[in-house]
Design a protein around this nucleic acid. Structure first.
Lengths: 212, 212
DNA sequence: GTCTATATTACGATAGAC
DNA sequence: GTCTATCGTAATATAGAC
C-alpha cells in the first residue's frame, strides 16, 4: 500500500488541480486543504502565503518543461534548418512528457499557464519571464530565423497573437472539448488540441506581410 | 454644465471599466459603487445581483455590436462571394463604431468578451449564445462557406483559436503598442492592430487540414 | 509539523428609515 | 430611489498548545 505523500506535496497536488479548473482567485485555501486532507494552517507553514503557493505550483511544472523544451529545440536545430511547424512541434514531446509526471499533467500545465497570464496583474508574468527568460529568448530567435521574410516588428506582433491563441485556448480547453464532444460527437484529448493548433499558428506567423 | 448621468448608467460605466481591467471576480461591488460615486445598495436595487450587473454590462455592448456586424456581413455577401479576409474585415467597422459610444469602447468590449469566456463557469457563455446565437450562426456560416475545404469540427476549433487571438491581443493592446513603439519606433492605434491581426487569422483559419 | 481557535478583513446582499 | 446600518458568510492569515 502506497504511503501517504507528505503534506507539502499533497497541497501542491490538490492546488494545481483546483487552480487549473477554477482559476487562482476562485480557489480558496480552505478548498485546497480540504481536498488535500491536510490542515488549513499547513499552507502558510509550508508556503508562507497563497501567492507563493501559486508560484510553487507553476514552478514545479516550468522546471520540468523549460529545460526539456530547450533541449528539443537544440536537437531539431542541430539536424538542419527547422520549419515553423518543426519548431512548434518540438514543444509537443516536452508537453506530453508532463503526463508521465502527473495524470493530465499537460493540460494542467497549459491551463495554469493561461490562467497565469490572464488572471494575474503581472506578478506571474514577471515570475515567468525573469526565471525562464533565457529559454524563451532561444525559442523566439529560432522562430525568427525560420521565417526570415517577416520583419522583426511584424514578428513581434505575430508572436503575441500566437501567445494569445495558445493561452486562451488552453484556459478554455475543458469547456471547448466538452462543446466539441456534444456538437460533433468527437472526443479530443489535450494532444489532439495541441496538434490541431500548431498548423494554425504556423500559418498565421508565416503569412506574407500584406503590401496593401 | 453637463448634468450628472443617472445612477444606473453611472454603475454600468464604472463597472465595465473595472471588469475589463481586473476581471469580474476581482471587482467588488464596493469598488464599483465607490468609483461611480453612488450608494452601495443601488446596485442591488437597479440590477438585483452582481451576476445580473455583469450581464447588463455585456448586453449594452452586444446590443450595439451584434446587429451592426450582421448588417455589414449581409452587405458584403450581397456584393459577391466574400473571402475570409473580407468577412473578418467586415467586423472592423462595427468594432470601431464602439469607440464612438465610449472612449476605448472597442478594446473594453473585447476584453469583457474574453473575461466572460474564460472566467465565468458557463453562465455568460450561455447568455451570449442564447441571446445572440442567431448573429453568431450567420457569421460562422459565412466563414464556413468561404472556406469549404475545412470540415465543420475543424472550423469550430479554428474559430475558437481566432477568438482567443483577438481577445488576448486586445486585452494586451495597450502594453503591446507601447513596447512596439519603444522597440521599433512605429506607432499603432487600435485600428492598426485590428488590421494587422486579420491576415494572421485568415491564414490560420484557411490553412489546409494536415493529412499526416 | 500539526492542530485548534481565532483575529482581521472583505464580500454580496438586504432591511428599513427617509 | 437613495441612504445608513448591518446581517451572514467566507476569505487569508496567525498565535499558541501540543
Amino acid at each position: 500500500m502506497a504511503s501517504r505523500s507528505d503534506t507539502k506535496t499533497r497541497i501542491l497536488d490538490a492546488a494545481e488541480k483546483l487552480f487549473a479548473e477554477r482559476g487562482f482567485s476562485e480557489t480558496s485555501l480552505r478548498l485546497i486543504t480540504s481536498k488535500a486532507e491536510v490542515n488549513l494552517a499547513s499552507v502558510n507553514y509550508h508556503f508562507g502565503s497563497k501567492k507563493e503557493l501559486i508560484r510553487a505550483v507553476l514552478a514545479r511544472y516550468l522546471d520540468r518543461f523549460m529545460p526539456e523544451a530547450s533541449d528539443e529545440l537544440m536537437l531539431i536545430k542541430a539536424s538542419g534548418d527547422p520549419s515553423l511547424n518543426d519548431i512548434f512541434s518540438s514543444l509537443v514531446k516536452p508537453l506530453l512528457e508532463l503526463n508521465k509526471f502527473k495524470v493530465d499533467g499537460t493540460s494542467t500545465f497549459l491551463q495554469l499557464l493561461g490562467r497565469g497570464y490572464i488572471e494575474s496583474q503581472g506578478h506571474l508574468r514577471w515570475f515567468i519571464t525573469t526565471h525562464y527568460g533565457e529559454h524563451l529568448n532561444k525559442f523566439v530567435k529560432a522562430v525568427a530565423e525560420s521565417a526570415p521574410h517577416i520583419p522583426p516588428a511584424e514578428m513581434f506582433w505575430r508572436l503575441h497573437f500566437t501567445l494569445g491563441t495558445v493561452v486562451f485556448t488552453m484556459a478554455s480547453a475543458d469547456a471547448l472539448t466538452e462543446i466539441a464532444q456534444a456538437d460533433f460527437n468527437e472526443h479530443y484529448d489535450i494532444e489532439a488540441v495541441i496538434r490541431k493548433v500548431i498548423p494554425y499558428l504556423a500559418a498565421g506567423v508565416a503569412v506574407p506581410v500584406s503590401t496593401q
